[in-house]
Amino acid sequence: MKKLSMLLLTILLVSCNNHERNCKDFRTGKFEFTQNIDGKKNTSTFIRTEKLQIETYNGKTDTASVRWVNDCEFILQKLHPKNMKEQKAISMKILFTEKNSYTFEYAFVGSNNKQRGIVTKLE
Rank of each mutant, 00 (worst) to 15 (best):
W68H: 08
K78G: 06
L13S: 10
E86S: 04
Q53V: 10
T28F: 05
R67F: 07
F108P: 08
P81S: 06
R27P: 05
V14I: 13
K93N: 11
N36A: 10
E105P: 02
F33G: 01
F26S: 02
K51E: 11
T28C: 06
T28Q: 09
G59D: 06
E123N: 15
G39A: 10
L8E: 10
Q87K: 14
T49G: 05
V119E: 02
K114T: 14
Y106R: 10
R67S: 13
N42Y: 11
I37N: 08
I90D: 00
K41N: 13
R21I: 15
I75N: 02
Y57I: 09
V66Y: 03
A89R: 00
L9C: 13
Q77L: 09
R116G: 02
A64Q: 01
K82W: 01
I75A: 04
R67N: 13
E98W: 07
N112P: 01
E98K: 15
I118L: 04
F108A: 15
G59F: 07
I94D: 03
N83H: 05
E73C: 04
V109K: 13
G39V: 11
N42L: 14
G39I: 10
E20V: 12
L12C: 13
E123M: 10
T34G: 05
K88V: 00
E32H: 02
E105T: 07
N112S: 11
K88T: 01
S91W: 08
Q87E: 13
V109Q: 10
A64D: 01
L8C: 14
S101C: 05
M1C: 07
N70E: 05
K121G: 00
V109Y: 07
C72E: 04
L4T: 15
F26C: 04
K85N: 09
D25M: 12
N58G: 03
I11Q: 11
T34K: 12
T28K: 08
L122E: 03
I54W: 03
Q77H: 10
F74M: 05
T49H: 03
K3H: 11
K60M: 10
S101W: 00
F108H: 14
N17T: 08
K24N: 12
K3V: 13
I11M: 15
R21W: 02
R48T: 03
L7I: 14
D62K: 12
Q35M: 12
F104L: 08
K82G: 11
Q87L: 01
L12R: 04
K114C: 06
N70M: 04
K41R: 14
L9K: 09
V14N: 02
S101K: 07
F26A: 03
D25S: 14
L52F: 12
F26W: 03
F96V: 06
E98A: 15
K82S: 12
K40M: 13
C72W: 00
G59S: 08
I118G: 00
K41D: 15
T10I: 15
A89Q: 06
S91P: 01
D62I: 09
T43E: 02
K114P: 01
C23V: 01
S44D: 02
E20T: 12
L9I: 14
Y106P: 07
M84T: 09
K30C: 00
Q77I: 01
Q115E: 14
I90V: 13
N112G: 07
Y57H: 13
S44A: 06
L7H: 05
S111A: 08
E123V: 08
